[in-house]
Amino acid sequence: MTVTTAPDAPLLQVGTLTKTFGGFTALDNISVDIRKGERFGLIGPNGSGKTTLINCISGALRPQTGSVVFCGEDITQLPPHLRARRGIARSFQIPRPFKSMTVLENLMVGLDFATVGSSLPEEDVAMSILTRMGLAAKAGAPTDTLSQVELRKMELARAMAVRPKLLISDEAMAGLSSSEVDEVLDLLISLGEEDITIIMIEHIMQAVMRFSERVMCLDAGKIIAIGAPAEVMANKRVQEAYLGT
């Protein structure tokens, strides 16, 4: 476990992960390494296991077999909040804001519990993240007054309040207009430039192509292709999976 300091050591190592629900195999022997600072796209048809995989990484689910190693530490058995403290943050496919709080307070939760020792007052840190995300004007707004795109941004901002090393974005662009998609995409790319590793689950292919350095495609719980975006898109099995033939 001393390899953590090596510059090219993977940030996240998923090893032979299997997750079943009753008789249904959602993830079948998945192994993948994600490099530090990588922008990683995760695609696949509905029900292919994408969300199950990130649930296993973020700790919402425990796999039957296999391991999740983060920064050289085996975190397979850790509860989600301890993973958040180690630097894994996520957004949800269907936004799950803390409804009784304002936007700023949503971020304060992460700052209160996941981040340790900052010299700046928490509220200033939260405001700077919101400014970054273009949500500063909404800091005092209750979350039920936000538009869809603002909710998506709020979820990413709340994830950023955890000060993540790894940010997992679960279909943060679903249901947005094309200009809004670009807006969120630009945000994600700019976050990637500050040394945050990002896993992006997405159905919008242009977004995946523009964002990802590497793409992995899942189908029925198995990896059917992994590599450069253009390569994966050209893969026959990927096309079949998507066209449903």
Binding site: G59, H81, P97, V109
Partner: peptide, 23 residues
């Protein structure tokens, strides 16, 4: 912060966990 954590988990337990709250 205990109060804020409790409020967060009342609103959404999974989201609270994933934001670092020891629910």
């Amino acid at each position: 912060r205990i109060g804020r954590g409790l409020q967060a988990l009342r609103d959404d337990e999974l989201a609270a966990e994933c934001t670092g709250v020891p629910t």
